[in-house]
Amino acid sequence: MAIPGYKHFKSEDWVDPTPPPADLPHVDEVGSSGAPLKSASFFIGSVCQEYNEDFMLCKNEDRDPKHCLAEGRKVTRCAIDVLEKIQANCATEFRTHWQCLDNKNQSFNKCRAPEKEYNACLFKALGWKKNIPDAPANKPQIHERIPLTK
């Protein structure tokens, strides 16, 4: 397959089909597209906070990819776990929300109605709550406010 206008620049030439080294423990990739990830991002961030921070501290020590493979596997497993839990408990709400994000240029602001149901379902089923860090504490968070413009 080539990008139109780049027939000399075949993407197959740049694919490396070699499997990873055998001594590396297997881990499934998340394999999700952008909108579901964005929809689940705040829950991945809060539930997997320990693993994420551990991984980023490790990356801060050394940018070499092989330095943080173990921490990276934990991060990926945790993200998959969060997505699977959401899928198991709030599949329809999740789907409505991420499809809305897909249609509305991934803008949270345009999808408050599905998000409200989605957040309520997750809070009821799993006790997860969306929290935006560093937001002013004396005001309600942006996803709980009445928007100024529709």
Binding site: K38, G45, R73
Partner: peptide
């Protein structure tokens, strides 16, 4: 923050 929360996962995969 939505993007920041996804960064570790994306870096790990890459």
């Amino acid at each position: 923050w939505s993007r920041i929360h996804l960064i570790p996962m994306l870096i790990a995969e890459a």
